[in-house]
Design a protein around this nucleic acid. Structure first.
Lengths: 373, 373
DNA sequence: CTTGCTCATCGAACCGGTTCGGGAAACTAG
DNA sequence: CTAGTTTCCCGAACCGGTTCGATGAGCAAG
């Protein structure tokens, strides 16, 4: 049985399930009147050659108005759309970008969701599709597929580590990619970053200005810190230095990405130093648990205890009282990453560009002056 | 300048940026020793024909051990991976599934994130990639790309409406797809659904059993209800019928997908009927706001007021007190949807299958007996 | 009536795989 | 030694587009 028979049998098999005639689905290019609709069929019906159809569509060479109209009419009639694989094979571009993020083993946070959403929308605006690749490290199979099999024109990397083999690898290959986050040596790279150092420091200064002297830092899980996640490290750095500068007494904690861990972490904090009056956190997912811990310990926020940190704005507003925090502009970051990548794809020779964002602290309701103890 | 020159210029241009020699990246099949690595190159180096290489890889015809070893050795040496577009063109399968979800105009909820994550992981386990398509309705450009241009082998649809043109369209085309959700007439379709009717009713019975007589229902945004979202409709139905059955006094509300709307909604509830002692919600994103509204009204949960609903478990545990709720098994639903789709792709002739899930109510800390008023 | 030029179109090659039919070599049986 | 099988591999066609060089028609200038 050759390939065409196979195609026919497909047609025949599908027919009984629902009559195809009558309802004209312009999107189908397989079931139209029992004919395979490809560029050759369009050419035949329009009475021109395949190349003419191609040029009529792409506009890369002039085509007379008459034939363009005729071709367009046939295309509309049959609902023809050029096959993406064939096009990709011929011109070497897939019109797809890869979005690389770590697998969900460690739960997704709300921030990641915001990134994904904004990347998809921004990509759609540029006529790119987005292929998701759950790859934490360079050697993941999914990552290999993306690059080795040329499934995407470029990639956006999330959850960057200070030493990130994925970033280095792509840079060495000169493969078009943009990182959401900075490695330890971001010079000459393409990325969109958040200045976690400055933001964490700003939180410390905010609390110090309010008179807090004993402050805890709630970081992402230890496993991520050990893996070298940049936000965890830079945030910790900024916190530590600013706290030293202001002469604060501090303790730092790692905390799992879920509510239960947050609650446990808060209990630990108050156990280690009951005189603690404030905390700074990077851990969005633990926030609910931290609040719960405070409530159970009888500490009222913000009267007895102040909470702040670096969190996506949308989630900071979910808790009660709303969190005073440096709002992670996830939507903007995703959009900018796509814009950079598209620019890089369109102009392969432009020098690397990047954006380092430093959003201000949004004053909401979770911090207040330290009460004399 | 013909295509090969173009390729060469690419090579040349990329060279100065970083020396390629020395570091051997087995994933690259473009920059290896200045030679394009495709199946022909493998064949030449192994001293066999292209078809032999293909058969050695696919195993669709026997190949002698000697040549197989030789071919494999060359492949390993050069880090060859077959081009996905070419393969897709030749055998008509892209090894990609499309995940169709509405654009973020209406914010993403945590539940959607869980779906996306689990679908991506399950797909990876079956060696499929996932292409994201932000399409609410049939006519979206992104949806057209997916199908018309044959970018995917099959699709998973999220956020199903009772009358959903996307579902009907795909069914009419016999295009392999699985819905996460049920239309009004789900018979004979492929889907994974949640029995919102039963779950909402279970919430009502739970509250009625605790003695509550005046109960509010907080639904998804009105816009979604009008659009016909199945969860909003079926949930409302189940709530209304069960409440009638138990003789409860009820009011139903629509509420925006964010904390501020939740707070406003709760104020409205207490304004409309201050004697209300409990609510049922489907609106995960508003949950934080509902809690905040209750706190500000001086109603303690669960002593003065009970809250329950249908919410992804992970998010029910984020609020304080933790929500007693029917936990949406998002992870399981995503996984099952992928399993069904893969089955359908592998065996085009098996009859439609589906799963209707009815998770139990998880008793946590947000409901309690009604206090005599 | 040629020559030269522009414009519109065509045919063929190509992208990088898969698949089918056929054929040479090796092996078996008579 | 010949005829029939089996084993392994090759060449060619094909998937559905894009792109390049060539060609012929139409037209203006000489």
């Amino acid at each position: 049985m050759n390939r065409f028979d196979d195609r026919l049998s497909l047609l025949i098999r599908s027919t009984p399930s629902r009559p195809v005639s009558g309802s004209l689905f312009v999107e189908s290019n397989r079931f139209e009147k029992g004919v395979v609709v490809n560029i050759g069929e369009i050419a035949r019906r329009a009475g021109v050659s395949r190349s003419t159809v191609s040029y009529a569509l792409s506009g890369k060479r002039p085509v007379s108005d008459d034939t363009r109209r005729k071709v367009q009419q046939v295309i509309d009639e049959l609902g023809y759309r050029p096959n993406a694989s064939a096009r990709a094979l011929a011109n070497g571009r897939t019109s797809t970008i890869g979005l690389v993020f770590p697998p969900a083993g460690n739960h997704y946070t709300g921030m990641q969701l915001d990134f994904i959403g904004s990347v998809v929308e921004a990509a759609a605006a540029h006529d790119y599709d987005v292929l998701l690749s759950p790859s934490g490290v360079d050697s993941d199979r999914s990552f290999q597929r993306l690059l080795g099999e040329r499934r995407v024109d470029g990639a956006i990397l999330m959850e960057i580590r200070l030493e990130d083999d994925r970033v280095e690898h792509l840079a060495a290959l000169d493969f078009p990619s943009v990182a959401i986050g900075r490695t330890a040596h971001p010079e000459g790279g393409w990325w969109v970053g958040l200045d976690h150092t400055t933001l964490a420091a700003a939180c410390v200064h905010h609390l110090a200005d309010l008179g807090h002297r004993r402050v805890a830092f709630v970081n992402r899980p230890e496993q991520l810190l050990r893996a070298g996640y940049e936000s965890a490290h830079r945030g910790l750095d900024g916190f530590t230095k600013a706290a030293a500068e202001r002469g604060l007494t501090v303790r730092t904690y790692c905390c799992g990405d879920d509510a239960a861990s947050g609650q446990a972490c808060l209990e630990q904090i108050l156990h280690d130093d009951p005189a603690t009056t404030a905390l700074v956190t990077l851990n969005e997912a633990a926030l609910g648990g931290l609040y719960r811990g405070l409530a159970q310990a009888g500490r009222h926020v913000p009267r007895d205890f102040s909470v702040t940190g670096v969190v996506a704005g949308r989630w900071a507003e979910t808790v009660t009282p709303q969190l005073t925090a440096a709002d992670v502009p996830a939507e903007e970051m995703g959009r900018r990453a796509v814009d950079l990548l598209v620019e890089r794809l369109d102009h392969p020779d432009v020098p690397p560009r990047n954006h380092l964002l430093v959003p201000p602290i949004s004053l909401r309701a979770s911090t207040g002056p330290a009460t004399a103890s």
